[in-house]
């Protein structure tokens, strides 16, 4: 039994909530990439203190549930006097969490860059910072693109957890309708399709970028 009326009535609400999901995914993903790049560089920098710091960060973020991290950021920030907009708090928590996974992805990417390139760059007198920003990170990024895109789809799919800190994204928006209508399928199908479409956009975008980077390198 498919209630077409309920389906049609739900679409505008779900579409609004889909925008929240997309914004949250993009902002969290960007924060995650930034955190991950810094942390990967710290881990491979050869400075012991930085390496340990980065390891602790990765271990804490990966080793504890995202739910706990969301609570700590959402209820901890206001205690430190930082005003916590629910959206920003959620994006920060999800971004920091994703950054730990991005660290490992970029670290593997950097290790895949042929060592000869670094020696050559050092030989022509490039500074270590330059070597990182000009040679290692761009290539590691290109090598890691498929994995980074997959990680962004994971970020997309962890956004529903933001509903515990008062962000009404697509899934929770659907739950609100479901519990009023006592019916799942009319809401459940468009939500599933919504996630698949957003993920497709991410994956296709990444593949497009991968193609362009490959051409630029060739």
């Amino acid at each position: 039994m498919f209630d077409t009326e309920l389906f049609l009535e739900s679409v505008p609400t779900l579409a609004d909530a889909a925008l929240v999901t997309i914004r949250l995914t993009v902002v969290s993903g960007a924060l995650g990439l930034l955190a991950g790049a810094l942390s990967a560089a710290a881990q491979l920098s050869g400075v012991t203190a930085l390496r340990i710091l980065s390891r602790i960060y990765v271990s804490l973020m990966r080793g504890t549930p995202l739910f706990v991290q969301l609570l700590v950021v959402s209820f901890g920030l206001p205690m430190l006097g930082v005003s916590a907009d629910p959206f920003l708090a959620a994006a920060l928590a999800i971004g920091l969490n994703s950054g730990a996974y991005v660290t490992e992805i970029l670290r593997a990417g950097v290790l895949a860059v042929p060592a000869g390139q670094i020696e050559a760059a050092a030989a022509v007198g490039l500074s270590p910072v330059r070597i990182w920003t000009r040679i290692l990170l761009p290539q590691a990024f290109a090598i890691s693109l498929p994995a980074l895109a997959a990680e962004l789809t994971i970020v997309l799919k962890s956004t529903p957890l933001a509903s515990v800190v008062a962000v009404t994204e697509m899934t929770y928006s659907g739950v609100l309708i479901q519990s009023r209508a006592f019916s799942a399928i009319e809401v459940f199908v468009p939500i599933a399709v919504g996630y698949i479409l957003i993920a497709q956009a991410i994956l296709r975008g990444a593949r497009h970028l991968e193609g362009r980077l490959a051409r630029a390198r060739a």
Binding site: T153, L156, T171, F188, I198, A199, Q200, L203
Partner: peptide, 14 residues
């Protein structure tokens, strides 16, 4: 692969 990458695990479980 593309479907799974976009599908929340909860939906699959359901």
């Amino acid at each position: 692969t593309e479907i799974i990458l976009g599908l929340p695990i909860l939906v699959l479980l359901y």
